[in-house]
Design a protein around this nucleic acid. Structure first.
Lengths: 351, 351
DNA sequence: TTGTAAGCGTTATCAC
DNA sequence: GTGATAACGCTTACAA
């Protein structure tokens, strides 16, 4: 146990630097020494200490992900999917992943600063974008390689991001409902601090405007990004004397909550109530009825984020481009637009 | 940028050791020096270098998870759920998570040895148990803190594990189908190298025996642990001249594949074909029809694994107990036992 | 092509 | 209580 580079060097009759060079596959090293050192490494069952290496190289070949303090937020099915995309790229590019879960006694700003300065990671992927998040100040100040999944607040300029065009996406979703004949449409969104909520609400409003439909603030619900939030939000909307006939939910999980509430209150979907979601998580196609939703291509979001981060780590001096991932309306059954002869031509028709 | 412990020491007019003691909250340190050092740390915006600390302390407060080489295996919904349990406990106990994805050019044995010897993690959680997996030899030899989720092969004695009683679980699942009147029951399992497949197959066989039903090897399908495997497996079973009337699928994802195949071939579930799954992933309650399955309490599995691992890291000399997590039959609609007056009394009745 | 030696940023041991 | 000093295991000038 605990065989180190010196042991190998000694046994092979060379210096530690030579062993180091063999490990690094240094070009100027004689074939025979290389051979000999490799043999000894096998013999002694030597494995390099990555920590020691990181200390001197100041890099760890590891991408960091900050698990939000509110941990359940991380288990919206959106995140496992993003993680999947990140993992695929990380694996193929030779990077490991570090999930920072500890330090949860600190706030997000401090946690970010800590994880960055701890030197355990070479870059950071930020999973959510909140208005006035002090975390952005840290990232801009430290100039640490990072990619935000989502849109940064307008005050933040220098941060690389990968996002969807959520305003358009929500515009299209709302328009879909309008074209199906709805003119009283509710909006169930996450916390308004989330940029994604703001953008999707904006698209909703723009679609109403474009159709010259009135905007009624009583139809707007801001809840938490969990199924329960969609549930109670839906209850409130159904309790209105003039209830909406259709719902834009800014997240599939909220949509499921809304569907559950509607079901329990005796409404049929889509006959009595149309519901459209966002993200197209794997569950969406399997729910009953299958959920019409806007796919944001989650896995691609994760893949691209990892790619951009790795490029940034490898070529820090280059100018890197933020990017928009496309979205598509996925028409299933929860809005009643599944009639094959229905005139509206969906982007994607599924199941 | 890059302020280190020496900078702090200098500015505070003390030695690096003193600063180190302040960081470690060492008892024998005067209140005033402590105060002064803390102030300077804030002033200089000092954050400790975790890598350097790990190097000397030989520990990293990090739990490792080896992402399987076959990465899609990791995205069976079982794993995100396990990860969720692990994350919860890791967070509350102050451990971070390291997902080893790189090194995928190596085999699992080498990857395991590498990650352990790299010193980046204090303990390892193994997500799957395969017969004759050379990984176990490594773990036993290195005596590295680790917990296996699943049952180790009988040849492996010294490894801590957390598991379900899969034989009983499968016995009960099969028995449920038998009690519903089925006597020709197919089994769609994962690769037979997986211990979990072996155990669940065994429970299935025992239930047939107990009911004096014949065992027909043509009714046994071994596929990959992916939806597609369940799909093709089901097609093969349906093509039999004497097709089964019910299916035990050793994984919910396989069950979904089977359901899809059955649906496409024109069979109704549960009227024409009963299907029972395993794990109770979140999707199971939402499928159409909702899937009857055996809950293995995935999150608890992950939580307990993390707890056991952390205990083992903290008290390596103690004797640690492996454990069994309970399971429950969750009766939904895919087996036709949803009639409230049906005599069979399910463990859990859901939706 | 190989070796020597300094240093990465900490903590631990042992003085005082 | 506090400070030197020596590790920890590796990489990398610089020398040879």
């Amino acid at each position: 146990m605990g065989v180190n580079i010196k042991d190998v060097a000694f046994r092979a009759g060379v210096s530690p630097s030579t062993v180091s060079r063999v490990i690094a596959d240094h070009p100027r090293i004689s074939a025979e020494t290389k051979e000999r050192v490799l043999t000894v490494m096998k013999e002694l069952d030597y494995h390099p200490n990555a920590i020691a290496r990181s200390l001197v190289k100041k890099s760890s070949e590891t991408l960091g992900i900050l698990i939000p303090n509110n941990i359940e937020e991380f288990f919206n099915p959106f995140f496992p999917e993003v993680l999947r995309g990140i993992t695929q790229v990380a694996q193929s590019e030779g990077y490991d992943l570090f999930l920072s879960t500890s330090l949860n006694h600190l706030n997000d700003r401090e946690r970010t600063e800590n994880i960055i300065r701890s030197k355990r990671i070479d870059g950071l992927i930020i999973l959510t974008s909140k208005e006035n998040d002090p975390l952005f100040e840290v990232l801009e100040r430290l100039k640490f390689p990072s990619v935000l999944i989502g849109r940064p607040p307008v005050t933040v300029s220098s941060l690389l991001w990968i996002n969807n065009d959520n305003v358009s996406a929500s515009f299209e979703a709302t328009q879909h409902l309008i074209e199906l004949g709805h003119h009283r449409i509710g909006f169930i969104g996450g916390n308004h601090d989330f940029i994604v909520t703001q953008d999707r609400l904006k698209g909703y409003q723009q679609a109403l405007e474009a159709a010259k439909l009135p905007f009624d603030p009583r139809l707007i619900i801001a809840s938490e990004f969990i199924e329960e939030g969609g549930y109670t939000g839906m209850l409130r909307l159904l309790a209105l004397s003039d209830r909406p006939s259709a719902i834009v939910a800014s997240d599939d999980v909220l949509a499921f909550g809304a569907m559950r509430a509607a079901g329990e209150m005796g409404y049929r979907i889509p006959e009595d109530l149309a519901i459209i979601g966002f993200n197209d998580i794997p569950l969406a196609k399997l729910s009953n009825p299958p959920l019409t939703t806007v796919s944001v291509n989650i896995i691609e979001l994760g893949q691209k984020a990892a790619e951009m981060l790795i490029r940034q780590i490898q070529y820090p001096e280059k100018l890197h481009q933020s990017a928009i991932i496309s979205h598509e309306l996925v028409i299933r059954r929860s809005c009643g637009a599944w009639n094959p002869v229905f005139p509206y031509q969906p982007t994607v028709r599924d199941r």
